[in-house]
Write a protein that binds this DNA or RNA. Structure first.
Lengths: 201, 201
DNA sequence: GTCGAACTTGACGCGTGTGTCACTTTCAGT
DNA sequence: ACTGAAAGTGACACACGCGTCAAGTTCGAC
């Protein structure tokens, strides 16, 4: 009957369901009113649970944000990383990385909206610049590309930031346009940054 | 004695001083804890004023944010606009616009921090994408440049967003590095986007 | 069917924020 | 000086969020 791994007792089932319900409610609340203005009560109210129950699952609203973040950050990082590491040409490096990024965001627009709305808070709270989910890794990959001669020498720290910042804004616009045109966005940023990389030679 | 225009009665003097004190306190508070988490009391506490006095100047905290925003948005827009409109080559168009932007941010790092911290809130609150203070104007300028043949045809909406997003992130890094190197940042983004623009032809 | 541990519930005590308002202080005009 | 309007003050009434906890409910083991 149940599709996934363990059938599990009813106890564990509701436990997982409650946790999921809280995370789901929090996703909406944080995206709608922003993390700072949101209260634990706002989250609970979007749920069938009682106020006290919340604290069986998370100690405070910050933990919920953290959980939500881990969800998205690890996923997007892994996808982008593996896409980039499979690339051998600069074209593929840029295009595949962005494609993985844009594709995932198209899949989870709600999480993206949450990140967009609370980007400043995230930066301040966890020093991880989770917004781009891996500026450091991009920087590292760029340095490796420079070292191996694939790409001309340049300020990789600036470049990583610029790529993430531009990609983020382009993603916003991409998701605003109907229908969502991932390939168009990929083509745009790829041309932009390939041109930029060459020019730095 | 007093440098500026009207010596003004003591009445008007303190009135202006109080308003300025509130705005200054709010600048700090919004930048430190984020707009959503901040309270009117937090602002007042950073001031010599009583709680009630606040409401003689602003109806609520949102109005303070609005006032703060107008301060920075109109200033940066005017500077960038005039810098760009004086340019005749694509090089100057890109470089001068960014230079005006970076230079102003270097002047007012506190307002920049406020914008950075609350970018998501600003977008949600006022539809104006005040963060880049003029994406629309940049888009318009780009379209004009395309129409006049200065620059090859491309998706100017994407380009405007990408430029603003990249500039914002580069500015963050620029202000983190010591000493603040405006010309280095200008040179970086100029090469990046000139290469990108050419490549789109 | 019984029992106990795990979980849920919602009301409670406490702290804090909101916007207001009667009262006081301050300044400008005479 | 004197006076009245303008502005400042802080306590107040109300509302809400927080985290807890005693009481109730539910599931699973035997």
């Amino acid at each position: 009957m149940s599709g996934t791994a363990a059938p599990a007792g009813k106890r564990e089932q509701t436990k997982a369901a409650n946790r999921a319900a809280i995370l789901d409610a929090a996703r909406h609340v944080f995206a709608d009113m922003g993390f700072g203005a949101a209260s634990v009560r706002d989250i609970v109210r979007r749920t069938d649970l009682a106020a006290g129950t919340f604290y069986n699952y998370f100690p405070d609203k910050e933990s919920v944000l953290r959980a939500l973040l881990d969800e998205v950050a690890t996923e997007v990082r892994a996808r982008v990383q593996s896409a980039r590491h499979a690339a051998v040409t600069p074209e593929a490096f840029v295009a595949d990385g962005f494609r993985a990024y844009f594709t995932y965001l198209g899949t989870e627009p709600e999480l993206f909206e949450l990140m967009r709305r609370n980007a400043g808070t995230l930066r301040a709270m966890f020093d991880e610049p989770a917004i781009g989910a891996g500026v450091d890794e991009l920087d590292a990959d760029l340095r490796a590309a420079v070292a191996s001669g694939l790409v001309p020498e340049h300020d990789t720290a600036y470049m990583a930031r610029a790529m993430v910042g531009a990609a983020f804004e382009v993603a916003v616009l991409m998701l605003d346009r109907e229908p969502t045109d991932v390939e168009g966005a990929v083509a745009f940023v790829t041309r932009l940054f390939l041109g930029g990389l060459e020019r730095h030679g």
